[in-house]
Design a protein around this nucleic acid. Structure first.
Lengths: 170, 170
DNA sequence: CTTGATCCTCTAGTGACTATAGAATGTAGG
DNA sequence: CCTACATTCTATAGTCACTAGAGGATCAAG
């Protein structure tokens, strides 16, 4: 039975070292054994748990949901129905997300199609973005929220550019 | 020509008062006129600009992209090609997002379908989440990032629950 | 024995907001 | 006119899920 340093685990799972430590800090991963010099050592079991977490994140599960799943996974006598219902719920979220995205796609495609490449004054891309928001806007901002339609970042996303200016202009 | 208080604007556009002020603070909205008592007053034009921003956010544009679009929109003599290319780029992102989501959907659907509602020990939902991550994991975490495949929250999302404990357990 | 990679902890930063405190101002009813 | 309540103001801190960096210790290879 091999043991791994945190860097090995990172390479093997595709999760960064920082993220592994972060997961440990929020209690999603147990605190691992340490070497005499205080370095973390992981066994096969933790590799699996981390894979579980990573895969779940990839599938769009949020940390609280993963926490639930892990608790279930840790208690093999529990019913599977709970895990199933969590997955089902996620499925609904995905469907609603897909719908929104598809509508969105159609809309942008339409914009691009009709763009005449002329001046902005007549550009449909900008015109279409300016209109048709106020009409259905009224209450929708939080309707999304109510529908549980949360989108999430895909894992390790951070574009890294665009430094923030503190406003001030104009 | 009517003018609106910030609350009216919020109601009319579906953007919260806080968010409007936030947009102003990052320079996405211009600083509006103020009343004698220092309250913001907005005109029709700002309503439009905010609708533009909100609709763009709904379509998944990130703030830097919207900033670009707004600059274009503000200079009607500029070429439309830039706006078009921004929209096109976004289209690619959407397509990749759609693909991922569809794959994801299929995967979760598979899990749910085969769940036998027995004990967790034999539950496929948990088993499937544990496996099949380490194999394709190796480098993929940042591959997503390279593909420019950023997902984003839908507007005003914040689930508000689950208080953070500072780890410590186990 | 040095060099460079890896590891440690801790703190602060990211994007796009949201929430709260504490104060001032506006509006309606009595 | 007074009171009550709503709205607004600024400023600061918190959210999620991480990521980045400082400043130091330890490891493995040459």
């Amino acid at each position: 039975m091999a043991t791994f340093a945190i860097g090995d685990v990172a390479r093997r799972t595709g999760v960064t070292v920082s993220t592994i430590r972060y997961y440990e800090s929020i209690g999603l991963l147990p605190r691992p054994e340490r070497t005499a010099s205080n370095r973390r050592t992981y066994g096969e079991q933790l590799l699996q748990r981390l894979s579980f977490i990573r895969h779940s994140r990839e599938l769009g599960f949020e940390i609280p949901a993963i926490r639930e799943l892990l608790i279930l996974a840790d208690s093999p006598t529990a019913s599977c129905a709970d895990a199933d219902s969590i997955a089902r719920q996620r499925l609904h979220e995905i469907d609603s997300k897909l719908e929104r995205l598809q509508a969105l796609r159609a809309e942008i495609q339409g914009l691009v199609d009709t763009c005449s490449r002329g001046r902005v004054a007549t550009c449909r891309v900008i015109a279409a973005l300016a209109e048709n928001s106020a009409d259905q806007g009224r209450e929708m901002a939080s309707a999304d929220e109510r529908a549980g339609c949360r989108t999430d970042r895909p894992l390790g996303g951070r574009p890294n550019g665009t430094v923030r200016r503190k406003a001030v202009r104009r």
